[in-house]
Design a protein around this nucleic acid. Sequence first.
DNA 1: TATCTTTGTTAGTGAACACTCACTTACTTT
DNA 2: AAAGTAAGTGAGTGTTCACTAACAAAGATA
Lengths: 194, 194
Amino acid sequence: MKVISDRQLEIIESAGRILTNSGLSGLTTKKLAKEMGFSESAIYRHFESKEAIIIAMLEFLGGDMDQRLGGAIDSNAPSEEKFRALFKNQFNFFSANPHFVVAVFSDGLLEESDKINQAILNIMQVKMKHLMPIVMEGQQNGAFTQSITPDELVHIIMGSFRLQMFKWKISNFQFDIQRNGQNMLEALLTIIKP
Amino acid sequence: MKVISDRQLEIIESAGRILTNSGLSGLTTKKLAKEMGFSESAIYRHFESKEAIIIAMLEFLGGDMDQRLGGAIDSNAPSEEKFRALFKNQFNFFSANPHFVVAVFSDGLLEESDKINQAILNIMQVKMKHLMPIVMEGQQNGAFTQSITPDELVHIIMGSFRLQMFKWKISNFQFDIQRNGQNMLEALLTIIKP
DNA sequence: TATCTTTGTTAGTGAACACTCACTTACTTT
DNA sequence: AAAGTAAGTGAGTGTTCACTAACAAAGATA
């Protein structure tokens, strides 16, 4: 993970906030400067371009998520508990940092530049990296169904998670994502247990 | 469904093509005119604004999808077959019209304007309108599991479908969506059958 | 034949955009 | 105390954006 100054982190957070509630076209240097409370040109003391801000944001989110998920999972717990812990951690994080849902819906940023695309794919891979071994272990010890492949199972789980986050976002964060997420998790578990 | 001229449909298709491979910020009047083979100002003979083009596109896609899904489903078939028919129809359509995947990922267009938001929500509702009764019927006659609610089941199904389309798009349409979609469908069916 | 209507053209418009420049101010280092 | 540096400012830059005005050509209508 790249080293980032306090000021850079502040800018990244402002950018996330703007992206989340005004979309990509709403993220202008003018708005960003206003949100930061200083002039437009000051931004360029901390980042060399707008693209660099977006990339730094995505890299920060990816690195942070990697650390969080790495720490959240007790390797001695049963598979089902690891599974729960992983998603609970995700829902807690986004509940506390709704302006960073961009990390899940970075789709909207796609096609902007190759570097951004790469950073987005990287975030998806981080999530996969932590989910896949849990699913495989669970299938091996009989906690999850073996009737479909691990890849298919992961696909269904990730799809449900993403859609949950999407619904939360279009509702303008009006419902409790920790509670609703928990419900979705239990429904998922119900049908993926053998 | 609003009446649309041939020329308007051509413009809508061009817009879909640009949106799909250049993103929202890539959809400019200049590019659109170039793709159409005439001047920028000619666009305004057919639409009063760029926003009107996007809205017309989304309304066309919603209406078209409604018709297609309405016609594709044999109301006498068993629930499982209706389910298969619905998704097969979707995969066939997008396979033939990849430039319209934007209908699935319209998320990226959110926050642009209230009218656009409305059109996007409408497309999602069209899909729900056709899927929900099939799922409920299937649960009632025992074709699908009753261990979770219809809403939860629909959520999992829709999430898996959207993620499948997302993977197809970021792969640059490199794989056969009809084949891969079929596989995903069977995996889904395996775990949602009682 | 004369006049609309439709669909296109060229050549613009002001506004917004990302970004730069010359300069200042406050701190730190030597 | 002198010199250097990090972080800010205000006033710009050229470019791109969506959109418009004035005009032209062709076909339909009267």
